[in-house]
């Protein structure tokens, strides 16, 4: 079992500008969740084992195991490589993930994301260019699609989100 507080202390000094940008983006995405505490796994960190805790997590390194952060948020940064099933409130993938995602609120796969696994979540966002192989369980109108500027259905998507 991994102590999230210890990890946070170990890697906090290694946080680089790109990670801070990720953190800022992450906070923008998850601001409604109201969590102030966020741990970060730097790009040189490798973890084999289950990850649990009581705060949000940004992964830029490698994780093999299961990630259970119920009620919190997980972001896999562009450099992150994860082989794990993830349970969290919001899950954002910008790097590689081999595993299933159970997002209580939302799952987002960014255009740089590469996911091999299944998704169960009330809302799923897949950006253009994202690679995905697996299944998506959805209720009507659960998917949000972010289009690149100028794309044909950009306005449609925005209309649905505002509705």
């Amino acid at each position: 079992m991994i102590d999230m507080k210890q990890i946070r202390d170990n890697v906090s000094n290694k946080m680089k500008t790109s990670q801070q940008e990720d953190l800022q983006k992450f906070n923008e995405i998850t601001h409604t969740a109201g969590h102030n505490s966020t741990a970060s796994l730097g790009s040189t960190i490798q973890i084999k084992g289950d990850v649990t805790g009581d705060e949000d997590l940004i992964i830029e390194g490698q994780v093999e195991g299961n990630i259970n952060l119920k009620g919190h948020n997980v972001i896999i940064g562009k450099n992150g490589k994860v082989e794990a099933n993830i349970e969290a409130n919001n899950i954002v993938v910008e790097g590689q993930l081999n595993g299933d995602m159970n997002g209580d609120e939302k799952v987002i796969i960014r255009e740089t994301g590469n996911v091999h696994g299944n998704i169960i979540s009330p809302r799923v966002t897949l950006e253009d260019g994202a690679l995905f192989k697996g299944s998506i369980e959805m209720e009507p109108r659960q998917i949000n699609v972010v289009k690149k500027p100028g794309s044909s259905s950009e306005s449609l998507s925005a209309k649905k989100q505002s509705a």
């Binding site: 897949l126 950006e127 690679l131 995905f132 192989k133 697996g134 998506i136 998917i143 699609v145």
Partner: peptide, 22 residues
């Protein structure tokens, strides 16, 4: 086929499970 954001957007109006095997 590969995952298509347009197709997912369209299919999201249904109660369905989509297997995207690419």
């Amino acid at each position: 086929g590969p995952a298509s954001s347009d197709s997912l957007e369209f299919l999201s109006q249904y109660w369905c499970k989509i297997h995207i095997s690419d």
